[in-house]
Design a protein around this nucleic acid. Structure first.
Lengths: 144, 144
DNA sequence: GTTGCTGCAAAATGTTTGCAGCTTT
DNA sequence: AAAGCTGCAAACATTTTGCAGCAAC
C-alpha cells in the first residue's frame, strides 16, 4: 500500500525522504480523519525534529497528487485529511463532543449529478458535512 | 423582514445599533453568500468608520441566533454567510473561477436522516459541498 | 445609570513562503 | 553534481479578545 504510493510519487519525480515516509505510514496506520496538527504529533513520536511546515508541505503535495482527500467544514474544526483509496463515504460529527463516525452511504447519486450538469456544472468533488448530536450527548441534553 | 429580526433580537436583550442595522440591511439586500470581508466592504460604503471586528462580532451573534447560516468548505475559500430564512438549498462552486450557483434540490432526505439515526446521530445541520467545473471553464479546458 | 456595543490594538490561530543548507537521486 | 526537500524564521490571512469610552435602553 505505502510502497505503491511511494513508487508512484517517485515516478513523478518526488523524492522519498524519511519524513515523507513516516508521514505516510502514520496516516495509513491511523486510517482516519486527521488534522495537520494531529499528523505532526504522531510523526514527532518517531521523528522529533520534524517541523509543522514540512507536514503542511507534504499533505498539500499528497492532496494535489490524489493520495489524500481534504475534508473541510467539520463544524468549526480545521480541515482534516483522509486516505483517498478508502471506499467513498461521509462523516457525522457531534456538535457537542466532536466525535465522528463514518457513514458508508452517499446521498450524491447519478440523478443528482445529472441535475448539476443541467445547471451547467460538471461535478468534480463533493463533501457532505453532517452535524448532529451523538447518542451520548443526546442523553446528557435530556437529563438536564 | 428586517424589522422582525430586529424585534426578536431586541426581545432577547440585544441592542439595535446603527452598525448592526446596516449589517443586516446589506445582507438582506444582497441575498447571497457573503464573507465577513465582503460584508465589511458593503457596510463601509455607508458607515465608513466600522471595524472588521464589529462585523465578526455581529455575524457570530447572528449565526448563534439562527439569523445567518455559515456555509463552509467552498473550496479553499473562507466561510460565507447566508440568510437562514431563504428556502433550503445548496451551492455548486467552480473550482477554476470560484463562481457559484444555487441548487434548489437537497439530497438529504428523510431516509438518510433515519440512516443517521440508526448510526446513533440526530442530524442537526448539514451542508453539501459541491465542487465542479462551470460551463465556461469547461470550454477553456477543452480548447487547450 | 446600567449594560451592552464599538473601535482600537494586540493576540491567537492556522497556513504559507523565502532562504540556506542538507539529502536524495 | 543537480535537483528537490527540510528546518528555521518570518510572513500572511483570518478570526478572536481585552479594554476604555460611548451609545442604547
Amino acid at each position: 500500500m505505502i510502497y505503491d504510493v511511494m513508487k508512484k510519487l517517485k515516478e513523478k519525480g518526488y523524492r522519498i525522504t524519511p519524513q515523507r515516509r513516516i508521514i505516510m505510514e502514520k496516516i495509513v496506520q491511523t486510517a482516519g480523519l486527521l488534522t495537520a496538527d494531529e499528523i505532526w504529533n504522531l510523526v514527532r513520536q518517531e521523528y522529533s525534529d520534524i517541523g509543522l511546515d514540512t507536514i503542511y508541505r507534504n499533505i498539500n503535495m499528497l492532496t494535489e497528487n490524489g493520495v489524500l482527500i481534504p475534508i473541510t467544514g467539520m463544524g468549526k474544526e480545521r480541515t482534516r485529511y483522509e486516505l483517498a483509496h478508502a471506499n467513498h463515504h461521509h462523516h457525522v460529527v457531534c456538535v457537542k463532543c466532536g466525535n465522528a463516525v463514518c457513514i458508508d452511504y452517499c446521498p450524491i447519486d447519478e440523478e443528482f449529478i445529472k441535475l448539476l450538469r443541467k445547471s451547467g456544472y460538471e461535478l468534480i468533488r463533493h463533501n457532505v458535512e453532517l452535524l448532529g448530536l451523538c447518542a451520548k450527548c443526546k442523553l446528557c441534553e435530556e437529563n438536564r
